[in-house]
């Protein structure tokens, strides 16, 4: 049995985080849960502590990339074999956890995909277009078929934990972090995963940021694709 850490980055998720933690515990009692509170201004930290779950609090809001990477650094330093990342808003189903974990031994990264097979997930049209666009782009760049590159439901093996602790993209990291791994000769696989509409709080992606999102992510994917040299990491 390997040591598994579920990393949940949370920013102002006091309404949904308790349910997310309880659901994970009810499906997988053997995993450790780590919530990383990205400078929330609400009671997220207190709610997590109430559940008896470990919480690390960033001193201020650093964004999803830096928060996620903190989890991977923690997983690396504490000798975890597998790190799973899950959203704090309850859109990922803990029932899919065993499925992700069952594939992580023969792969370096397992991605929970909404579109691999028909699931009940229904996205707004524009978001669907965006998701398809990035999947197509990444499939072209990596020469491997991906259906859901923006999914934040992933299980990472030891090799990926170490790579992500070294380098992780800062904002909107999901798509670029796939290309980064394929450049490092990692084995990636998608498995079907249910995603629910969010239970509480609001999505971090407002229409206003969408244009920036599209351009920034496209640029970083294209640059990652031509980046043969090692990304210089801090000592």
């Amino acid at each position: 049995m390997f040591k598994v850490l579920v990393i949940i980055p949370a920013y102002n998720e006091e309404l949904s985080i308790q349910h997310v933690i309880r659901e994970i515990k009810s499906h997988m009692s053997s995993v450790d849960i780590l919530v990383i509170n990205d400078g929330s201004t609400d009671n997220t930290e207190a709610v997590v502590k109430e559940e008896g779950t470990k919480v690390l609090s960033m001193p201020f809001n650093v964004g999803i990339g830096g928060t996620m990477q903190t989890g991977y650094i923690y997983a690396r330093d504490n000798g975890y074999d597998v790190a799973v990342q899950m959203d704090a808003d309850g859109q990922h189903a803990a029932a899919d956890l065993p499925k992700l974990l069952s594939r992580v031994e023969e792969n370096d990264l397992v991605i929970g995909s909404r579109f691999l097979e028909q699931t009940s997930y229904r996205a707004p049209l524009m978001r669907k277009v965006g998701i398809r666009f990035f999947s197509l782009l990444v499939s072209l760049v990596t020469k491997q078929r991906f259906t859901d590159t923006t999914s934040g439901f992933r299980a990472a093996g030891r090799k990926v934990i170490e790579l992500y602790a070294d380098y992780y993209p800062m904002d909107y990291p999901e798509v670029e972090s796939i290309v980064y791994l394929t450049n490092r000769k990692c084995k990636l696989v998608e498995v079907k995963a249910e995603m629910r509409q969010r239970e509480a709080g609001k999505s971090s992606i407002t229409p206003f940021k969408s244009a920036y999102y599209m351009i920034k992510v496209t640029l970083s994917v294209l640059i990652s694709a031509v980046r043969f040299k090692e990304v210089k990491s801090l000592p």
């Binding site: 690390l56 609090s57 960033m58 001193p59 650093v62 830096g66 990477q69 903190t70 650094i73 330093d77």
Partner: peptide, 8 residues
């Protein structure tokens, strides 16, 4: 920031 958070 990350190291500090983990140390804390």
């Amino acid at each position: 920031t990350q190291e500090l958070t983990i140390l804390k």
